[in-house]
Design a binder for these strands. Structure first.
Lengths: 153, 153
DNA sequence: CTTATTTGGTTTCTTAATGCAACCATTCTG
DNA sequence: CAGAATGGTTGCATTAAGAAACCAAATAAG
């Protein structure tokens, strides 16, 4: 059986997970954010099998999250770089990292700091237009007409 | 072969993905945020196979993201509810949703609005301590001593 | 109270994905 | 030019996913 498709569920979250929802994709993106660009460097730093890495990179390229650039001087030698779409996943990756650190403890020797001040980042939060922090209890799920969302199930 | 373990990679992101990094887990959490609590409701709204749903719910419960509550009047009848840890994934889910809407277009008839004002939410961003928005290019990855992070690969 | 239906699973079977190792052509290095 | 590194591909074994059938307990209907 083919895996269930997530891009036709009429859900943005499902659609996103269809692109980066597997075990490896977001880790590849995170690694790219650290500066990794070469196939072998991804392979060694992540400890991922070559065929899986190959498949994930191709899929990330297909989905516009990364680009493959030929940097060979006398032929083919590639670099994989994040696109704007890929870099925009910074929020997601950072939120995930912070969530893990909050609930599972600091298991990462690596820290993210502001490049200018060297201070740690602020926690990623959901704000309303006035800058007030919102939890899931403070929001409503509505349809296009502003009426309360009813699930189709 | 068993899937590679992500909780011993010394990476918070990997650790998070170990808990919610598969195709279904985050969708189950998102659905729970919409108010779904019963097994059959998850099943119908997500279109997930029963055995997979069963497995995912168990794993989310094991990881402290959800709790199973017996609500039967004369025996066993269960509800699955988000814990604080689970509700805290709201930031991640919202960031993912917004990312998808920005880059793949609005494929979701459902909208999230501020419960008070009814206005759309602000975009989820990464801030420094002073509230300035940071991109991935504005941050540094450092070790515990503040020295630039070197990958072990 | 009795029957039918719903709930919350488990089991079985088939297909897909993952991991590992071996292999290979091209490219860079010494 | 020789040897190593790069960026893959292929084949095989193991695991996960999906569909459907089945089932016991709990609830709803009559």
């Amino acid at each position: 059986m083919t895996r269930k498709r997530f891009d036709d569920m009429g859900c943005s979250v499902a659609c996103a997970l269809n692109e980066v929802g597997d075990w490896w994709s977001l880790l590849v993106v995170k690694q790219a954010m650290l500066g990794t660009r070469r196939f072998v460097d991804f392979q060694h730093s992540l400890g991922i099998a070559k065929n899986i890495l190959c498949n994930r990179l191709s899929r990330l390229v297909d989905n516009g999250v990364m680009v493959r650039v030929d940097v060979g001087e006398h032929g083919k030698r590639y670099e994989y770089r994040l696109t704007d779409k890929g870099r925009d996943l910074f929020t997601v990756v950072t939120a995930l990292r912070q969530w893990s650190e909050r609930w599972n403890g600091e298991k990462d020797a690596m820290q993210l700091v502001d490049g200018q001040s060297g201070e740690p980042l602020a926690p990623v939060v959901v704000n309303n237009q006035q800058g007030k922090v919102l939890t899931v209890r403070d929001v409503r799920f509505v349809d296009e007409d502003g009426k309360p969302w009813e699930d189709v199930g």
